[in-house]
Amino acid sequence: MRPDPDALAMFVQVVDSGTVTAAANRLGLAKSAVSKRIAQLEAQLATPLLHRAPRHVTPTESGALLYERARAVLAQLDLVADEVLARSGALQGPVRLAAPLSFGIRYLGPVIADFMRLYERIEVSLDLDDRRVDLMTGGYDLALRAGRLEDSELRARRLGTSQRALCCSADYAARHGLPDYLEALQGHSCLGYANASIHHLWRFRRTGERAGNEERSLTLRGRFVANSGEALMDAARAGLGLVVLPRFLVAEAVRDGSLRPVVIPGWEPVPDSLQLVYPPTPALPLKIRTLIEHLAERIREPFPWDAPFVSPSEWSAPAR
């Protein structure tokens, strides 16, 4: 008998995810349903397809062969379906997208709304969280990320370079002065981002004619750590210390004067790479490719939040 494409798709998902539980979560099915379908596929082909361990599964020799062939077959089926949908103009189905909380609130909502107006049969689930989600096991089709691409298994579409800014309140500057060289930061209260691997490690790069590729990292102290950029910005507004945050988050606060930029001659915070990342499937569904193109068209350089800051004269404060 010919294997059912749905059963093959489940098997590929189990191998990609590494566990039946993770595959079931991604597929939106009960773990028992996925296990039963894989067992039926093994019975149909009269051979074990998976080595099962308590917390991980790996394909057998036969399973590895089926996995490679099934991925290719499913990719071709997806392409055929995409061609038919493209001709009919009827893109449809669910898409799950993850993005940072602050960026999503400020910039992503209207872009997604426009996309859904264009494609009325696509259902979008937008998860906003500053924590970095696991695309492979979390059931996500796509994520927008700011920072370096750490997972080499993922594919990425780069949107551009997004700047970061060192800021504080005018009150903090008046009480404590401002650092005028890099090491002077060690004498200040520096607010830490808890989602970073080392929340008080700040990275700077040299600017100007001597820039080259020189970077410096400083481990700094501070009384406040948070896993939210919004909370860190509120703490900086309240005068609790210096903070390094993406400019898309602090640009409005600098414009209204509740925060002021801090410039250290010859140095600036290392910027982020803004990118869309997605699992390494053989052929992305057309609905995902279409969303990627839409996001890349609407979120592109020059980013509006990276416009130069205008510093009011009252921001000047003596260095200490």
Rank of each mutant, 00 (worst) to 15 (best):
W202D: 12
R203W: 10
R203Q: 14
R205P: 11
R205Y: 14
T207M: 11
G208H: 08
G208V: 11
G208N: 09
R210K: 13
R210L: 14
A211D: 06
G212E: 10
G212M: 06
N213A: 13
E214Y: 13
E214K: 14
E214R: 14
E214F: 13
E215S: 04
R216S: 11
R216Q: 13
R216W: 03
L218H: 01
L218I: 05
L218A: 03
R221T: 12
R221C: 07
F224M: 13
V225P: 04
V225A: 15
V225I: 15
A226P: 07
G229R: 07
E230I: 12
E230P: 02
E230Q: 13
A231S: 09
A231V: 09
L232I: 08
D234V: 13
A235D: 06
L240E: 13
L240Q: 12
G241D: 00
V243S: 14
V243L: 15
V244I: 15
V244L: 09
L245M: 09
L245K: 02
L245E: 06
P246R: 01
R247W: 09
R247H: 12
R247N: 12
R247A: 11
L249F: 07
L249W: 06
V250S: 08
V250L: 05
A251S: 08
A253H: 04
A253K: 00
A253Y: 02
R255F: 06
D256G: 01
G257R: 00
G257T: 01
S258R: 09
L259G: 05
L259D: 04
L259F: 08
R260E: 10
P261S: 11
P261D: 10
V262H: 05
V262L: 11
V263N: 11
V263Y: 12
P265M: 01
P265R: 04
G266D: 07
V270M: 10
P271V: 06
S273L: 15
S273T: 15
L274D: 01
V277H: 00
Y278W: 09
P279K: 00
T281H: 03
A283K: 07
L284K: 00
L284Q: 04
P285V: 05
P285N: 06
P285D: 04
P285E: 02
L286D: 02
L286W: 04
K287N: 06
K287Q: 12
I288D: 04
I288Y: 06
R289T: 01
T290C: 00
L291G: 03
I292N: 02
H294R: 03
A296L: 08
A296Q: 11
R298Q: 12
R298M: 11
R298S: 07
E301N: 09
E301D: 11
P302Y: 05
F303I: 10
P304I: 06
P304T: 07
P304V: 09
P304D: 05
